[in-house]
Design a protein around this nucleic acid. Sequence first.
DNA 1: CTGTTAGCGCGTTCAA
DNA 2: TTGAACGCGCTAACAG
Lengths: 355, 355
Amino acid sequence: MARKRVTLAQVAAEAEVAVSTASLVLSGRGTDMRISEKAQARVRDAAARLGYRPNAVSVGLRKGSTSTLAFVSDSVASSRLAGEMIKGAIEAARDRGYMVFVGETGGNVTLERQLLDAMVDRQVDGIILASMLTHGRSLPTGLDSTPAVLLNISIDGDPGIPVVVPDELQAGRDAATALVSAGLTDIHLIGAGPGLRDVRTISTAAHLRLQGILEVLSAHGLAPASGRAINQWLPPEGFRAADAILASGTPEAIVCFNDRLAMGVYQAIQSRGLSIPDDVSVVSFDDSSIAAWMRPGLTTVALPHRVMGKRAADLLVDAIEHDRAHPDEPGPTGVHLVPMPLRERDSIRARPGRD
Amino acid sequence: MARKRVTLAQVAAEAEVAVSTASLVLSGRGTDMRISEKAQARVRDAAARLGYRPNAVSVGLRKGSTSTLAFVSDSVASSRLAGEMIKGAIEAARDRGYMVFVGETGGNVTLERQLLDAMVDRQVDGIILASMLTHGRSLPTGLDSTPAVLLNISIDGDPGIPVVVPDELQAGRDAATALVSAGLTDIHLIGAGPGLRDVRTISTAAHLRLQGILEVLSAHGLAPASGRAINQWLPPEGFRAADAILASGTPEAIVCFNDRLAMGVYQAIQSRGLSIPDDVSVVSFDDSSIAAWMRPGLTTVALPHRVMGKRAADLLVDAIEHDRAHPDEPGPTGVHLVPMPLRERDSIRARPGRD
DNA sequence: CTGTTAGCGCGTTCAA
DNA sequence: TTGAACGCGCTAACAG
């Protein structure tokens, strides 16, 4: 097993040149250093024949840079989201020549420390710290000694490093606009609301979505017909909330704060023999995989996890390269909002008599 | 930025001993080598004071082993599965002191080669090669020079390394048994069947599930009342298939080959005003997240992705350690079947008049 | 018991 | 143009 790797020294021997010559040739600076064409050819040939590949560990030790990123997330339950973000980050990293270590903390701070340390020990060039919750948290120490980017984490105060988060505020506006521009005015909220402070989760997404919704409604002289602040955004809760609304009449439209709530809402509406969107229009958030499969297809504002991951990796590599070029200047920073596109399907119907 | 790391030499200087002494003490073999208690204390103290952490890259170069695993998958669309497998692998790896590089090939063979090479360049100690399709494929070369495990991949012939796959055959048996033991005999198949060769996907899962189902049915003197071999196992296909069955009467029971098909089947049954499970019993496979949220809860045979990932990582570390201990003996091998547990919910009802 | 020495594989001076 | 020598940080022989 494990047949020995060929080293640069072996290539040099095979090509009958010195190691440094081989090194220069293979790093593409042969012509630059005016090394004879025939020598270069011999080196390249030998390398190819022997199947030489530079030992990345050695290069890492020598240059201090390992072309490696760390992706550390807390990924609690909502694993699908994490998967997409990781995927986006990995792809972007690969395109820029980086590999990525992935670690999960399960929200455990001690574990997070250990993971971060292990990553730094392995000389990662940069760190993406991701959360699946988007709530305010404090920053682990040590993130200042290595380039880092925060993904889906909102920090209180300026973290001094780039932050990538979805544009939940605009998403809220877009969801509300989709309803209002269909002429719907009797709008009920399930998940949070009706007031700006009626939020039961630590997620900042809830606040921002609500804020965006209320902003658009009030701009049209409207207010939510009702609102339910819910702690757990799952189908059964959605069902119960919708059922309560339906008990006292048929609403024109319901905004669900995520697709799982919407699934329960669908069940409640349909079990009463009502039709979506003929009787009730529904709009939601997340665009999880079920949204497209529900009948009718659910119109929802997508959380672009993959794009967010990609964005974070790109920003991180930018930061790393900036750091290399200008070691003493402060690195890039700022909050990067990733747009949440509205996926229009078939759960909203314009009110008759309106355009 | 990037304040300099503390090196072993600095610790040794601070403790006024030689580097080798410091090395021995910090690797826990101080007492073993009978180094004076006070010297040991000085070293430990200095290390703690300076915040010393060994440079893993250097250790990797020196020892040839990096405490690092590679997880390479092709993860096509079905990303949630990949996420769970990765998670399981990462957790198990962490518990045994390994970090993991994650890479995705999107099914691109060239990319797979490049990724694998990049991993090997970084001196990973072992490789998990995973697929989300479980179909027969050929093995990339080079997997023989590094310990490796195949995850969710069935290879034609003996790959000579451990393989982890779900026990789909038994899963098929269990699904059929759940129905038969409820006294149901009018059983329709959606996804594959009715005959053993009626399969439209490359997935080996379809074959094995079908085989298990037919085995149990025939053991009870039964055969499928109907079967539909379907290419794409998605809700619309499930809806159409179920609708066709319902057009010619109400079936006692339907076996769906995955949960997404079942979702469509639910929609078809319920849109006709029929009840699950009072009129029709349904059983399925995968236990995807929607299964628990459907109404009524879907009884389904779970694909334990996380367990599979964990299993693969454990086997890989076993193989690595075996290799270290007995470098010339052949490594472990064999097919490891991971049980697929039946998640009983509320979509099956025993036929009245039976127990 | 402790210190010195020699690499792991590579990139980079500095001379020749 | 090329080759010899040094060191990244650490471990393992080998002396002392």
